[in-house]
Simulated assay, not measured.
Amino acid sequence: MPQSVDRALDVLDAVAASDGPVPAKALARRLGCGLSTVYDLLGSLTARGHLVRTASGYALGYRVPALHDAFRRQMRVTDGLQDLLAEARRAAGADTYFSTYRDGDIAVLAGAATGHPATGGFTTGLDDTAHATAHGKMLLAALPPAARQRYLTAYGMRAITPRTVTSPARLDAQLRQVRRQGLAVEIEECAPGVACVAVPVPSGATGGAPAAVSAALPLEDFRQRGPQVTEELRRVAAEAAKFRKTADITGPTAG
């Protein structure tokens, strides 16, 4: 049973990764499964609404948006927060994101981006490269040492560009500076020609999970407008704090 669940999720992931409908035979080749097995899995996923069958193959089904809405609800990502990020993108002239820490993981939960490759291609979802991103450095700096070490042990510190910090000692020095300044900046650590800046979202008297808002923009733009973008992010962070629930279940593991 666990293997069939894994295969079903592999099928779902493969369809999600495609730009359009995928034929069953193509899925079987891609996943190294027998065609009859793939048809069985496709039948179950289609019956539950996670996939739909079209004339060209299989595509994501109408159940997927409901799962996305449920995820946003559980992670406290409101329409107000999304609108705030979109407003910030227009005001700052940079792609903006909201990120948080939950039970050992760091994730980008919402964003307002142009999708232009020059921004580095950040997308919402799990971030396993927090050592190289501005929002990741901000959140790592806010964690207790034991929780921070667990994250770095789990995901490592791989080099993404020649400028990525891969030394634990250098990262520790950066994080100390982040805590002093209340600001995280990375330059070309995640993508060539791209700079990112992040500020913390105030948690308020009730505490809660560390969260950050960040912006990504071409390096030349950052050199010219970095202070203005940072000022806009601080405004956004103060507003974003209003959308955080007081009963936050996503706080860092004590350590």
Results as ranks from 00 to 15, higher is better:
V194Q: 14
A205C: 02
D221F: 10
I106G: 02
D105M: 13
A159K: 07
T54G: 03
D127A: 13
R179K: 04
A198C: 09
R53W: 02
E186L: 10
G20P: 13
L35W: 07
G156H: 04
R63F: 06
Y151S: 10
A130W: 02
K242G: 10
G182Y: 04
A154R: 10
Q3D: 08
A216E: 06
T253N: 02
T206F: 02
G20F: 12
D13N: 13
T206V: 04
T37S: 09
D69S: 12
R158P: 07
H50W: 15
S99K: 03
P218I: 08
D172E: 02
L140V: 03
V201A: 05
A134K: 03
T206Q: 03
A70G: 14
S44P: 10
R244W: 01
G80M: 14
A59C: 08
A159W: 05
T54I: 04
A94C: 13
T46C: 09
L233D: 05
M75A: 15
R244G: 02
P2C: 01
H135N: 09
A8W: 03
G182L: 00
L126R: 09
T164H: 01
D13G: 13
L140P: 00
R102Y: 11
H50I: 06
T230K: 01
A134V: 10
R163K: 12
G80I: 15
G156P: 09
R179H: 01
R179M: 11
P144T: 11
R7Q: 05
A159Y: 01
R158F: 09
P192N: 07
G136E: 04
L41Q: 01
T250P: 00
V77R: 01
T153V: 13
L45N: 10
V201N: 02
G182V: 06
V5I: 11
Q3R: 14
A205F: 00
V5M: 12
G20R: 14
Y58F: 14
L60C: 13
A118H: 10
Y151P: 02
T123Q: 11
G125K: 11
G226S: 02
L85A: 14
T129V: 07
A16C: 03
A154W: 06
P145R: 02
D127L: 14
L84N: 04
A173P: 10
R76H: 09
L126T: 04
A198Y: 07
L152P: 01
A26E: 13
L41D: 09
G111F: 11
D10I: 00
A241W: 06
P65R: 03
P145H: 00
I187T: 13
P117H: 05
P202L: 00
Q149G: 07
A86L: 12
G208C: 06
C196M: 07
L140G: 01
A70M: 10
D172A: 05
